[in-house]
Write a protein that binds this DNA or RNA. Structure first.
Lengths: 123, 123
DNA sequence: ATTCTCCGACTACATCTGTAATCGATTCGA
DNA sequence: TCGAATCGATTACAGATGTAGTCGGAGAAT
């Protein structure tokens, strides 16, 4: 849903709301990671952009707003993963897996974990 | 290398050059997919942006230029895949794999193919 | 030699993104 | 009650992006 793309800075805000919601703008600002210590106005701008993209909603609480995500993290992750697969791997899973497997140099532990997942899936 | 991000429109151009290079701007335009039938000026703008990002190079051929990729597709794909893994899966492969496996609803054939790849990797 | 055509370079311009300042209203503390 | 702190809303502004037009020069055709 809501095909508007969420930008990188906006994603930072979403991550905070996915971890804990509802939050006020000030709360969100307080939870920013250290490498993104934005000013409060910046956080408010991002929140209002997310509002207009229908990625979050807000509800009045006295004279401020409490923000909550409207898009679930799972949905977003699925969407972005699919986008990568479509853009770079012809939309197919196997080439993506092959690429990752080669690139990531899987450890023996990883391999057994994958095998376990596969067995689980078969049943 | 060359940390400048390649945009979506620029990627369309790169895909064409990855498939066949060197090409002139006109050649590139002629090979655009139907859903991106841009004007020649647009193609030229994108090529010059890619030039300044050092993603392609050009060599004079009479009075026009022949463009070739400087960044390999493999490198780009690796970079973008890692970016997704970092942004959404804490930089770790297993959660990404688990997500994809669940999402993509692997067929029996896929599963055997994965198992084959894994066996190959162990040796 | 003159005109036509084609090329790359430069310019354009709306939208999105990152990052923030300011402003008018409100409420809280004194 | 009166100033201080705080809110949300509005405005700002540079850089990236999508998409294209224009212009001056060089080759090609006549």
């Amino acid at each position: 849903m809501s095909s508007e793309r969420i930008s990188d800075a906006e994603l930072t805000i979403m991550e905070i709301l996915w971890e804990r919601a509802p939050l006020t703008a000030t709360d969100v600002a307080a939870r920013l990671p250290d490498d993104r210590a934005w000013s409060l106005p910046t956080v408010k701008t991002l929140l209002s952009r997310l509002l207009s993209k229908a990625a979050v909603e807000h509800r009045a609480d006295g004279r401020r707003f409490l923000y909550s995500p409207l898009i679930g993290r799972e949905d977003y992750v699925a969407h972005e993963s699919k986008r990568l697969m479509d853009r770079l791997f012809g939309g197919k899973f196997m080439p993506l897996f092959a690429h990752l497997a080669e690139q990531e140099n899987l450890s023996a532990a990883d391999i057994s974990e994958i095998e376990r997942l596969l067995r689980e899936m078969k049943s």
